[in-house]
Design a protein around this nucleic acid. Structure first.
Lengths: 245, 245
DNA sequence: CCAAAAGTGTTATGTCTACACCCATGA
DNA sequence: TCATGGGTGTAGACATAACACTTTTGG
């Protein structure tokens, strides 16, 4: 058995470029969308890619992810940002050795995100389309996106990630739509409501009510995220599977 | 809003050394243990560290982790190996910019692991001791070990990681001990048995029986891991918490 | 025979699901 | 007043926890 103490002898180490890629997910028109940018230079010129950039030596990986998110979306601060994987296959970038650390950012639909950007360079793409083979992604970004979506499905059950998809106040129907879309299930509104309200702390009623839609209906109560959206599950994933995701 | 396409312009990137650290966890005398190596050179000379080494440009991160595990323990092949985090804080290595990708390896107690090694250079240390402030770990390895243990607790519920702690055949009492130790709970043997056997596929009876201990007792049936130890949970974590972990 | 450990049965309690029903609104 | 969507009640199915009891071994 060889015991190799970690010496970091420079002669034994190759150097890599380290990047941080941020998979920005959001709900738009009831569907899960991902923010993609179109590459303007080779390699993979013209193809869509997950936004990202180089890590600087004087910042942590988390800080680099925050910086990238800010640069790409203008969103700052306590936005939900979660590291979920590192990718370093040889040849994943044809020009140099690159190891990328992938982050997941969950945002509520930001209109300035699509509006304020030249559509040819950045766009919100439905995840189903981005992974459906229609859109060819640069590098190994299809794999990274697949892993990101898998991570969301797990985190939705284990953490309070769901509220990051909706606004500061929300109706339970809006929140339920997040679970239904990400998990590809249909949840009973009555039981969903009880699951969340059974344990005090998940959501807090604001006392205000939302405007009903044009077709009428009783106005829904507005809630805000409670203290303990981390860790523990408000609802279990073992719902009835829908036809498609 | 700045749309920064990923150009990998070398002038914009700094170079990093990339290492792979492998947190080897195993059960020994009923307690969770971690394999640590003692550093023979500065920095942190004489302190304990998580084994690891440099990633080579021509191998994937997973391959690097497998190679490190083989070099450290002699264990090869389909051993349970799982990436769980990347660490790149500036200054985490005082000499150079290092980003490390951390892996979790779960092994059943290998006697050659402790026996075949000079005790001054590698040792199995109880996790409680390694994280209890008694043992000072090099670099940010205390944080990495904490994250690894947190990951095991989650994976034990979400995947079939538990069987990786025991031998190719095992009694249900052995398997239950893994859950009890990692989660810090006390589980009812009767209900634990039912939980696993209720869904066929988790464990498969071999027909053979284990030898009872010196103090007698009915010999336990021997099982082997079933096909579907991934994904889904054989047992939920919401057990009664014990006094200590 | 007794102690110890494995395995089985039983029951009270809790949780989840499905669905019926009531409430508040727009048109 | 009707359609629409939000909110409440409830009975049956199912899962969980607690614990008494039986089985099989060593001494």
């Amino acid at each position: 058995m060889v015991v190799e103490t970690q010496t970091y002898d420079p002669s034994a180490s190759s150097s890599f470029a380290v990047t941080v890629d941020v998979v920005v997910l959001t709900m738009s028109q009831g569907r899960l969308h991902v923010l993609l940018v179109r590459r303007g230079v080779p390699p993979f010129e013209g193809m869509w890619a997950i936004p990202g950039g180089f890590k600087r030596p004087d910042e942590t990986l988390d800080e680099a992810a925050h910086r990238e998110l800010l640069e790409e979306t203008g969103v700052d601060g306590a936005s939900l940002l979660r590291q979920f994987g590192a990718y370093g296959d040889p040849g994943r970038d044809p020009r140099m050795n690159v190891v990328t650390v992938a982050y997941l950012a969950v945002l509520r639909a930001v209109r300035s995100l699509a509006a304020g950007t030249d559509a040819a360079e950045a766009a919100l793409v439905p995840v189903a389309r981005a992974l459906g083979g229609k859109v060819e992604l640069a590098f190994d970004h299809a794999r990274i996106l697949r892993d990101a979506v898998a991570q969301v499905r797990v985190d939705l059950e284990l953490t309070g990630m769901a509220t990051a998809f909706v606004g500061p106040t929300f109706t339970l129907t809006e929140l339920r739509a997040v679970f239904e879309e990400v998990w590809g299930v249909r949840l009973d509104p009555a039981n969903f409501r009880r699951s969340l309200l059974a344990v005090s702390g998940w959501v807090v009623p604001t006392g205000r009510r939302a405007q009903p839609g044009a077709s009428g209906g009783r106005p829904a109560e507005l809630y805000r995220a409670g203290r303990r959206w981390r860790h523990g599950a408000p609802i279990a994933a073992r719902g009835t599977r829908r036809g498609s995701g």
